[in-house]
Design a protein around this nucleic acid. Structure first.
Length: 418
DNA sequence: GTTGAGCGTT
């Protein structure tokens, strides 16, 4: 345990230089690092494992070194660097065949090969695109009222003038973590395993697998992280691997009116070559020009391909600016073609909006109307629509009692032993 | 082919 302390301390000491090192983004990275170090792999011998293993980037970029923790490589670490990765392989020099790296039964760790990590170049195994797992067998026709919600960032410092607008880089405040829905959970996954998976990524304040009265799993669950930063880390991982099964984690379509939702971008005029990875990359980089801590939390490309996609960002501010700059300065180019961007319209027909946010009456049912985001834009980068204004300081209604009791802060001793 | 899956109270 004490050498973990040492590692932590030296990490801190390394970041001596400037305020630069204290940027929210770096803090996020540190939190992550610490979360990984805290993770214990108890039964693995502490022998001479290398600190990092070398993994070839399938997109042809330079190789990436992934850290080991007690001799294992965390699946979450792999997936953070290689979205969609499900495992690692390496060439067996004797046979010329590929060997897969063994995955711990929980699906959380990649275990050290029998002859060690050294002297091997690893390659990423990625699940085929079309093979994403369904959460529930399609027999689930509950007609719930739905409303998409987004989230924003929780950081505080701002400096830096960036983004194509040349405006000051924004920072978002006032948002709280929410329960995230976890879809595709294996029916046999235990609450304990479920919780442990997310604790690798950050502090978990609440989690639960939904079960029927007989105790059997419904195949989905919820998790709430302690901070928006940790929540964003969870959401930024495109494909989670929990107990050996691929799962999606999303901000739920809450019927509880949590906050205004304008963080989703509609991306039109796409060529059929785009894939999720590419959109995550383009929009992730773009978003961070505007809001340092922004991440892509979801990408949806209809199958079969229909020429458009939805990209959800953790930051509404970033989404708004990307869209508005695409009008004033010309759109982003993907695969050489300039795409059409707008703020996604809410999905359900009969949305009930709270009094302080949402579409103004004149813009409801705009599918049939002259949509402002289709009109040629005059000149100066105004949002195509008067969506919710964050600078007015929207506060979600203070959710009183019934929910409150379900959450415990990380250090709270009254927190039950899960 | 420019607007989307699956979603919780006990």
């Amino acid at each position: 345990m004490s050498d973990q302390q040492d590692k932590k301390n030296s990490t801190k000491a390394d970041s001596s230089a400037e305020d630069d090192a204290k940027s929210p983004l770096n803090e996020v990275k540190e939190i992550r690092k610490e979360a990984e170090l805290t993770q214990t792999g108890s039964d693995i011998k502490k022998e001479d494992h290398p600190e990092f293993i070398t993994v070839q980037d399938p997109t042809g970029e330079e190789p990436i070194e992934l850290p080991t923790v007690d001799g294992a490589v965390l699946m979450s670490t792999l997936q953070a660097s290689f979205p969609g990765a499900t495992g690692l392989k390496y060439k067996n020099p004797k046979t010329g065949a590929n060997r897969a790296v063994q995955v711990d039964p929980s699906g959380l760790k990649l275990l050290v090969p029998s002859d060690g990590w050294d002297n091997k170049t690893f390659h990423v195994i990625v699940a085929p695109q079309g093979e994403r797992v369904r959460a529930l067998s399609s027999a689930d026709a509950t007609s719930a009222k739905r409303r998409k919600v987004g989230s924003s960032d929780d950081s505080d410092s701002d400096d830096g003038r960036d983004g194509r607008s040349g405006r000051k880089r924004a920072v978002e405040r006032d948002s709280q973590p929410v329960d995230l829905i976890v879809l595709g959970v294996d029916f046999k996954t235990s609450d304990d395993c479920f919780q442990k998976y997310f604790e690798q990524i950050g502090n978990v304040v609440f989690c639960e697998i939904k079960r029927k009265s007989d105790g059997s799993s419904k195949g989905f669950g919820f998790v709430r992280m302690a901070s928006v930063g940790e929540q964003n880390k969870v959401l930024a991982i495109p494909q989670h691997m929990i107990d050996g099964r691929r799962c999606d984690v999303k901000v739920p379509d809450g019927r509880d009116k949590q906050r205004p939702s304008i963080s989703r971008i509609f991306v039109g005029r796409l060529t059929d070559k785009v894939d999720e990875h590419q959109l995550r990359k383009v929009f992730g980089e773009e978003a961070q020009n505007y809001v340092e801590t922004a991440v892509v939390t979801d990408v949806f490309i209809p199958k079969p391909f229909r020429g458009f996609a939805f990209v959800t960002l953790s930051s509404a501010e970033a989404a708004e600016r990307i869209v508005s700059d695409s009008f004033s300065k010309g759109s982003l180019t993907i695969n050489g073609i300039s795409v059409g961007l707008s703020i996604a319209q809410p999905r359900e027909e009969n949305q009930t909006f709270g009094p302080d946010y949402g579409l103004p009456a004149g813009y409801r049912n705009r599918r049939e109307r002259d949509r402002p985001d289709r009109r040629p834009l005059q000149n100066d980068a105004v949002l195509p629509m008067p969506f919710a204004r964050h600078d007015f300081g929207y506060r979600p209604p203070q959710q009183s009692s019934p929910l409150e009791r379900r959450y415990w802060s990380p250090g709270d001793s009254s927190r039950p032993a899960w």
